[in-house]
């Protein structure tokens, strides 16, 4: 009773023919093996499952796969080997942003969107940028500092 669902996933064209009401996070993790996106709350509140849909940050646990028909998706796997992705990940490592690590893929995705839109954010703008990402180790200050570090070290990448 439904048509195929077509979308681009990390640059590759995908045609999905399963149940269109499955949650996008389940399809990403179970069908495509992209286990970088984590499930925390399952209610779109914690940000651990954040991915980028048509350039915008979304939580993949509250979107049915049918909701990305015709869209371009980027997951942490799609950015980790890019210049920008490496810039963020290196800054997180250098500044010690990572404690248990569970929230980090989502934090990196939020950072990627933030710096793409605002290459030189203030501390307040950084905090707003990750306001939908919960870190239960509560290590926010180091994450905020590392995002500022990524903005500074990668200035040439983000200023475009």
């Amino acid at each position: 009773m439904f048509s195929e669902i077509r979308f681009t996933l990390n640059g590759e064209q995908k045609i999905y023919t399963g149940d269109p009401l499955r949650r996008l996070i389940d399809v990403l993790r179970d069908d495509y093996g992209l286990t970088g996106s984590k499930e925390g709350c399952g209610e779109g509140e914690c940000g651990a499952c954040s991915i980028i849909k048509d350039g915008k940050l979304v939580t993949s646990c509250i979107i049915p796969v049918a909701g990305v028909n015709g869209c371009e998706l980027l997951t942490i796997e799609g950015i980790r080997d890019t210049e920008k992705g490496k810039c963020i990940i290196d800054a997180y490592a250098e500044g010690g942003a990572v404690q248990c690590g569970f929230c980090i893929p989502g934090m990196v995705m939020a950072t990627y969107v933030l710096l793409n839109n605002n290459p030189d954010p203030s501390e307040e703008e950084i905090r707003v940028g990750i306001s939908g990402n919960i870190c239960r180790c509560t290590g926010y200050d180091l994450i905020v500092e590392c995002i500022a570090l990524a903005a500074k070290k990668g200035a040439a990448l983000w200023q475009k």
């Binding site: 779109g44 509140e45 940000g47 954040s50 849909k53 915008k56 940050l57 979304v58 939580t59 509250i62 979107i63 909701g67 939020a110 969107v113 707003v128 940028g129 306001s131 939908g132 990402n133």
Partner: peptide, 9 residues
Amino acid sequence: MGAIALRNS
């Protein structure tokens, strides 16, 4: 409403 990701959905 909510946070950034929710407002995008």
